[in-house]
Every structure is written in structure tokens, then in C-alpha cells.
């Protein structure tokens, strides 16, 4: 997605996330395409027929629901990106109420990735974040390689990892 100035020759602006702190981010490695050669560094496959075709790492969405406030930006961002009509969306915000010992309620919001979530492949293949991740107002969403997301998960109190296809 190269950005070309309309009426100035200024350099394209960097996506500067300096001020966002612990923010939503992509943790992708660069996209790796499978190749069938250079076998020496690869393990043999189970059938012993030779080298494994390396596939790109599985991608997922990590939701740090300790901080999801239920603002619905993810849902509408998804609809705008995919032009989904009413009744259809790639992400669906769920509200879970849990009664605490003192009879008050803990509220958890959890955006659930539906069968229509394609992890914004068109965006991520250009190095951009999925629409929901970028616009999440609480910066609670992370996109990237599942293994790397799992590492982030180890450090947070309440997370869910989704791996939509």
C-alpha cells in the first residue's frame, strides 16, 4: 500500500505508534513462502520421504480481555473493511457477567472471531494490521504468529487466543 502524496512531495509518514505505549500491534514474522529445497537445515518428515515443506506460521488474534471495554469498534471496523451487511460480521462482541462474592458483577467483554473472519488477509499481506486490531480503542488486540502470541499470553492475566481460518 504505497502512499503517494496528492499535492506535496513530502515523504510517506511512518505509522508512528510511539505514544500508544503497550499497544495493539502485529507480531508477524515476515511472510514466509514455502520452498522445497535447502533440505539440510530441515527435519525429515514423519514418513521419511524427505524434507518438510515449510508453511507460513499459523496466524491468530490475541484478545487481552482484561481491558476490553465493549466499545464495538472491532465489529464496525470489520463490517466497514469487508462491507458486511447487518447480521454478518467477522467478529462478534460477547458480554459475560460473573457474580462476585460481594454480589456485585464483574463484566468481561470478549470479541469472538466468527466464520467470516479472514484475519484481514488483504491488509496483513500489505503489512497492515487487521481493521479490528488497528481501531481497537482499548488496544487489547494483537495479530500475528500463534507461537508469538502465546508468548505474550504468558504475561497477561486474562487472554484468549483465536485462530480463525
Amino acid at each position: 500500500m504505497p502512499r503517494r502524496p496528492l499535492n506535496s512531495d513530502a515523504a510517506p509518514s511512518a505509522h508512528d505508534r510511539r505514544a500508544r505505549g503497550e499497544d495493539a500491534k502485529s507480531v508477524n514474522s515476515s511472510a514466509i513462502c514455502a520452498t522445497e529445497d535447502t533440505p539440510s537445515s530441515r527435519p525429515a518428515c514423519a514418513e521419511g520421504r524427505g524434507v518438510v515443506v515449510q508453511r507460513p506460521p499459523r496466524q491468530g488474534l490475541l484478545i487481552d480481555y482484561e481491558y476490553c471495554t465493549g466499545c464495538h469498534s472491532c465489529e464496525v471496523a470489520c463490517k466497514q473493511e469487508h462491507d458486511y451487511p447487518v447480521g454478518k460480521g467477522g467478529i462478534n462482541l460477547c458480554e459475560i457477567l460473573t457474580e462476585k462474592p460481594d454480589k456485585t458483577y464483574r463484566i468481561d467483554y470478549l470479541p469472538f472471531t466468527t466464520m467470516y473472519c479472514d484475519l484481514c488477509h488483504a491488509r496483513t499481506s500489505e503489512g497492515r494490521q487487521p481493521a479490528c486490531v488497528k481501531h481497537c480503542q482499548a488496544s487489547t488486540m494483537y495479530h500475528g504468529d500463534v507461537a508469538k502470541l502465546a508468548k505474550i499470553m504468558e504475561e497477561k492475566p486474562h487472554c484468549a487466543l483465536f485462530t480463525p481460518r
Partner: peptide
């Protein structure tokens, strides 16, 4: 369509659902 502006210091790219439904 409307996207958040990551270079703007107020929300750094985040955006509310009303703005995302602007079209």
C-alpha cells in the same frame, strides 16, 4: 471508508464505531 490516523497524537489510529460507520 474511514480509518484512524496513526500519526495523530490523540488516538494514534484508534477510532470509535460511529466514525467507522461514517460512510
Amino acid at each position: 471508508k474511514v480509518e484512524g490516523d496513526e500519526d495523530h497524537p490523540y488516538h494514534q489510529g484508534r477510532l470509535c464505531p460511529r466514525a467507522l460507520a461514517l460512510r
